[in-house]
Lab assay of single mutants.
Amino acid sequence: MATADDFKLIRDIHSTGGRRQVFGSREQKPFEDLVDLGWLKRSSVDSRATHYQITERGTSAAL
């Protein structure tokens, strides 16, 4: 179930172009929650960072 923080984060991601790069596993937790909701997808993972991209469902949630 989505929380107020989830909606705040997806709106922030949407307003800044729909993509986010995250460093460190602790910082990934809120983004992984949005992946579980179907609002974000992991577009790539490298040794230092994970890249996320907003989905259509995420765009709808952000509006």
Rank of each mutant, 00 (worst) to 15 (best):
S60A: 15
F23K: 11
D46M: 06
G38R: 04
S47L: 11
F23L: 11
R19G: 09
S60H: 13
R57Q: 14
F23W: 10
S47V: 10
T16G: 10
I10A: 02
E27F: 12
L9A: 03
R26N: 13
G24R: 08
T59S: 08
L34K: 00
D6Q: 14
L37A: 03
V22G: 03
S25T: 13
G24C: 08
T3G: 06
F7L: 10
H14S: 06
S43R: 08
S43I: 15
G24V: 07
Q21S: 15
D33V: 15
L9N: 04
L63R: 07
S47D: 14
L34R: 00
A62G: 03
S60C: 11
T16L: 07
I54V: 04
D46C: 08
K41C: 08
R11L: 13
D5C: 11
Y52R: 00
R19P: 03
F23P: 08
S43V: 15
L34V: 02
R19Q: 13
E32H: 06
R48G: 15
A4V: 12
I54K: 00
S15R: 13
A61P: 01
V35C: 08
L34H: 01
S15G: 09
Q28V: 07
R42E: 05
H51A: 10
D36S: 14
V35E: 03
T55Y: 00
M1P: 11
V35K: 02
R20D: 03
Q28E: 06
G17F: 04
D5Q: 12
R11C: 09
D5W: 08
Q53L: 11
I13G: 00
R20K: 08
F7H: 05
L34A: 02
T16K: 11
T55N: 03
V45S: 11
Q28Y: 06
R26Y: 12
G38I: 02
R42N: 04
L9I: 04
G58N: 00
Q21A: 13
V22E: 03
T3L: 05
R26H: 14
L34P: 00
L40I: 06
R57T: 12
S25I: 12
R48V: 14
D33L: 15
A61Q: 05
T16P: 01
